[in-house]
Simulated scan of single mutants.
Amino acid sequence: MDHFFENTFVQTASYFSVAVLGIIVFLAIFELVTKYSNWVEIKKGNLAVAMATGGKIIGISIIFHYTISQHASLLGMLVWGVFGFFLLLLSYFMFEFLTPSFNVDEEIKNGNYAVGFISMVISIGLAFVIGASIIAT
């Protein structure tokens, strides 16, 4: 059985499966902390929500990219991916905290493209920082 898990195709499928499952779970967690329903708003054509959600998907994927490239085991990849996600989630709350003049969630829900775009850029940018930090460990 060990030989089976040493197969490159099996390892690739395993990393892919764990990363996709992680993206789904982490998006569900983001859905719980936002004051709007991502998929309802996207279905309505809310581009600000689509940008913010897309940034989260890219951000989570970037973190998984770094964890896969730096950790030889699925467990190591998953542990560091979860840790990286929580750092990304923390950055979401910091963005909200650092903008006291407006409510980020409300602005995104109301279709404010500028706030949706900045939210996307923060998610992507900080995912690279988180990923680089994962490499350093």
Rank of each mutant, 00 (worst) to 15 (best):
L78R: 04
E106D: 13
D105N: 11
L87K: 03
S61Q: 05
M77E: 06
K43I: 06
Y66D: 07
E96G: 14
K43P: 05
L88T: 05
M51S: 11
F102W: 02
V82R: 00
H65V: 06
P100W: 07
A52T: 04
D105K: 01
K44S: 10
G59H: 05
V82K: 01
H71A: 07
V82C: 09
K43A: 15
D105F: 11
P100V: 09
E107P: 13
F95N: 06
I62D: 04
A50P: 01
D105Y: 12
G84P: 05
D105L: 08
L87I: 13
K43C: 08
L47E: 08
G55H: 02
H65K: 11
I118V: 15
V49T: 12
I60D: 00
M51G: 02
K56F: 09
F83W: 08
H65C: 03
E96S: 04
L47F: 09
Y92F: 15
A50W: 01
S101L: 11
K43E: 07
S119A: 15
N46R: 13
F102Q: 01
H65L: 15
G54P: 04
K43G: 11
L78G: 04
S73E: 14
L47K: 15
I58V: 14
F93V: 11
G111K: 08
I58W: 00
G116D: 03
F83K: 09
M120W: 02
M120Q: 02
K56G: 13
E107R: 14
F117A: 15
H65M: 14
Y113N: 13
S119V: 04
I63H: 00
F85Q: 04
V49Y: 00
